[in-house]
Design a protein around this nucleic acid. Sequence first.
DNA 1: AAGATACTTGACTATTTTAGTCAGGTTTAT
DNA 2: ATAAACCTGACTAAAATAGTCAAGTATCTT
Lengths: 141, 141
Amino acid sequence: MKLTSKGRYAVMALADLARFDNISPVSLRDISLRQGISLDYLEQIFSKLRKKEIVQSIRGTQGGYVLNKKAKDIKLTNIFDAVDEKVKTVQCKKESKKGCNGKSTKCLTHNLWDELENHINNFFKEKSLEDLVKENIERRI
Amino acid sequence: MKLTSKGRYAVMALADLARFDNISPVSLRDISLRQGISLDYLEQIFSKLRKKEIVQSIRGTQGGYVLNKKAKDIKLTNIFDAVDEKVKTVQCKKESKKGCNGKSTKCLTHNLWDELENHINNFFKEKSLEDLVKENIERRI
DNA sequence: AAGATACTTGACTATTTTAGTCAGGTTTAT
DNA sequence: ATAAACCTGACTAAAATAGTCAAGTATCTT
Ligand code: FES
Ligand code: FES
C-alpha cells in the first residue's frame, strides 16, 4: 500500500504554491525547480487541479497559478480527489451485494477493509493545506 | 493508494483458517476453493507466513496449516509484515537526513506523510485476527 | 509588433510492480 | 504404493505508474 507520485506531487506543489501565491502567481517552472518535479508532469497535475477549481491559472508572462480558495478550505481529500489519487482497499464493487470472490455474500474481510478505508480517508478529510503551511513555518523558526 | 492482493489474500486466508484450525489442519486447497484464491498463489503466501511463524505446517495426507499463536495475538501488522505488504508514504529514506528532492533538508510534505504512515499503521497494530473472526461470527447470527 | 514566458492539450512510452503460472520436487497418512 | 498435501524457485503476462514529447495558445514586456 503506497502513496503514488501523483498524489504526493500534487500536495507538495500546492504546499509550495501556498507560500507565495499571495504575493504573485507562481509558475510551474519555479515549482519544478524548487521541488524537483518534472515540469511536464506538473502540467498534467495542475490541469486537473484547475478543472476542479482548486487553483486558478493566469496565462502569459509573469503568469502562473494561484489558489482558488483559502488554504484552510482546501483539504487533502479535495486534492486527492482532483488528481484521482483514490484510496482503494476493498476489491469488490461497494454498491453490489456480491463479494470479491464472485459469491453472493461479501467476503470475510470486506468490513475490515471498509473500516480501513474510512480510517485513512478521515485523515485526509481533516488535514488542510493551511495546516501543512503552518507546520512548515513553525519548523523554520 | 491501494491494498495489494498479497496482503488482502493473506488476511482473507488466515480469517478462513482461523475458523477451523482448532478442529483439524486446513488445507490450502480448501481455502483456495472457499475464498476463490489461486492455489499456487496461496502457497507463496503461506510459505512466508510459515517462515515468520504465524502458521505451522503439517505435511502429508490430511495435512494443512494451523495457527502458530492465539488469534488475538496475531495482529494485522504481523501478517502484513510477513508477506511484505508495507505501507509506504514517504519517498525518501527515513534514516537519511536528505529529502526526496535530493536536497539536504526534508521536503515540505515529509512530516505529513510520516503522520499518515503512523495513522495507517496504528490501525494495523490494533486489529487482531480474533477481532476479525468475532465480527464474522456476529454477522452470521 | 516581436519575443519571451508560461499555460494547454493529447498522445505516446519506458519502467516498475503486481499477480499470478508452471514445473518440479518432498513428506506422510492410509 | 499411492494419493494428498506441502515446498521451492523460476518464469511471465498484465496492469499501473511515472513520466516524456510535440505542438500548440494566451499575455506581458519592451
Ligand atoms: S472486499 Fe468486498 S467482498 Fe471481498
Ligand atoms: S518524503 Fe521525505 S523528504 Fe520528501
